[in-house]
């Protein structure tokens, strides 16, 4: 994304477009990532309730996947999961594909 000059941006740091926080990818902030164990998951979706970054993707009322572009690795989902179907692993073990913020 090419950054705009001072004449081409709204004043005062205003953001005029709703819901554009999604464009800001925060996945690279993660030091640990949640990993899902399909066998243990009962699809109670407590992870979806607790996730502060809306990074639990649900399809047809079932857990589908994590949004690793935005998940910051806080681990709340793994703490809340009643069946221990989510555990945290070192991010370094995975290839980092996102470049958060750009």
């Amino acid at each position: 994304m090419k950054e705009k000059g001072w004449k081409d941006i709204p004043w005062g740091g205003l953001i005029l477009e709703e819901g554009n926080a999604e464009e800001y990818k925060t996945g690279s902030w993660r030091t640990h990532r949640p990993v899902w164990d399909e066998k243990k998951c009962t699809h109670c979706l407590l992870c979806w309730v607790y996730c502060p970054d809306s990074s639990i993707i649900v399809k047809e009322e079932k857990f589908k996947q994590f949004d690793y572009d935005h998940c910051k690795g806080c681990g709340i989902c793994s703490t809340q999961c009643p069946t221990k179907a989510i555990h945290m692993e070192e991010e370094g073990k995975f290839v980092i594909k996102t470049e958060g913020g750009k």
Partner: peptide
Amino acid sequence: SPVTYGPLDLYDYYFEHKRQ
């Protein structure tokens, strides 16, 4: 026309807002 006031404004745009 929803609008956001006061977002985090780091080295990428803060300077431009001061210029304004």
